[in-house]
Amino acid sequence: MIRPDAPTLLEIRDLRASVEDQPILKGVSLTIRAGEIHAVMGRNGSGKSTLSKVLAGHPAYTVTGGSVLYRGENLLELDPEQRARIGLFLGFQYPVEIPGVSNLEFLRVATNARRAERGEEELDTFAFEDLVRERLAVVQMDPAFLERSVNEGFSGGEKKRNEILQMALLEPVVAILDETDSGLDIDALRIVAGGVNQLAGPDNATLLITHYQRLLDLITPDHVHVMAAGRILRSGGKELALELERSGYDWVDQELARLGGEPERQPVEVA
């Protein structure tokens, strides 16, 4: 939902970042207002996950230029945990397995960290169980997953549902969902998309990173951005995604050549 008077939640200006001295993001600019759903599309290796990790504060990435304001505050000087507590959420492309740490306890500690930041009381184990059972419904997840170690032995689809469950518990202001649709069968995709739609509201915003139109058939974006070689090449409305679906990404290389930029690097598989 686009409202010109809605407050700006995230303002990314000319963001540049590198990993191991290799520049990956080469000037990304993006403004996200309350109530909006944005989609970022692009080929493998174009820098989408890097953008999400930099926003979440992953220590492997060095910001080399530009700025990110989160509700007017300099996001880049905050620790990852502080970013999460004030309402930034990253749904991981590859959720991490943590053997030996119970999913239930992990969810409770995380939820309480966010609640403390919002001035709400901590939930004890009983109160939290009530809350988590209610939120499980958002992703139609079996409570048995609470008893297991975080993501350990979960299928791809189960891991993604666990991400959305975390989102439902943390009630973020800005949610970045990195390929939450990949690896999902059509039923799981419906469930995940339904969860995201349910959680989207006038006071928060969602940034969907995806390859596929099929997610955007279920979650209608207000803005679509095409990323290539570490920058946003083109932005438009939801029709841009449909156009990509028809004509593919071949025009990207011509446009990059015209801009005189480097071609996209072949991605290295990084989990």
């Binding site: 990852p80 945990e81 999460a84 740490v101």
Partner: peptide, 8 residues
Amino acid sequence: FYLRSRGI
């Protein structure tokens, strides 16, 4: 990082 990204 995964744990920290959840506010821990």
